[in-house]
């Protein structure tokens, strides 16, 4: 079988906030054609169940990733690029533990830098003394965010879809009673 090259669309990293006051977490990615579409797809893929109040997406190409091993083996930049123009802002996402988790890491703040090296130095300075198993720098201007004013229609309806929650399924005993009574639901 031969056919023209397929496109599955570009990849966008997804940051999801589970509740007010909690940090956004890197939960995975979606394939989508453009930023607006990516945000809709992020909601579609990562908010099928009720555990979100906010969602951000960023093109995968706008994310620089460094593991602890890469940071340790990284050669110090020999020559710092001159800081031309306004510094770029970056979101900093950190993985802090090897514990089992659904998320890679969580947002710890924003840094500025004229280039990635400067931003990385700023992020590491900010996290000095804390565990850094891996770090992402995400170009802040590439991030597209869900509208906080629409949080309820975006994330609320999943709460009503109780049939997706294991807790609504009857135990062995009640299943037998239901069957005996012919309860349809």
């Amino acid at each position: 079988m031969s056919h023209a090259a397929d496109t599955q669309w570009p990849r966008w990293e997804v940051l999801k906030q589970d509740a007010e006051g909690k940090p956004h977490q890197a939960v995975g990615s979606v394939h989508a054609a453009d930023a607006e579409h990516a945000l809709l797809m992020a909601r579609t893929v990562f908010a099928r169940r009720p555990s979100a109040v906010s969602m951000w997406v960023a093109p995968a190409a706008s994310v620089r990733s460094f593991t602890a091993q890469e940071l340790a083996e990284r050669e110090a930049p020999t020559e710092r690029a001159p800081a031309a123009g306004a510094p770029e802002r970056y979101l900093v996402v950190r993985k802090a533990s090897h514990r089992r988790s659904m998320a890679f890491g969580e947002l710890v703040g924003e840094v500025e830098g004229a280039n990635v090296d400067e931003a990385l130095a700023a992020a590491l300075a900010r996290l000095a003394g804390e565990p850094v198993l891996a770090l992402w720098l995400v170009e802040a201007r590439a991030v597209v965010r869900s509208d906080p004013a629409e949080a309820d229609p975006w994330f609320g309806p999943a709460r009503d879809k109780t049939y997706k929650q294991q807790s609504v399924y009857s135990s062995r005993a009640t299943a037998r009673q239901d069957a005996a009574k012919g309860v349809p639901r």
Partner: peptide
């Protein structure tokens, strides 16, 4: 892979 599985397990019980 581990993270995908943790997420999947949470949903698969249903």
């Amino acid at each position: 892979y581990s993270r995908a599985m943790v997420r999947i397990c949470a949903e698969e019980t249903f």
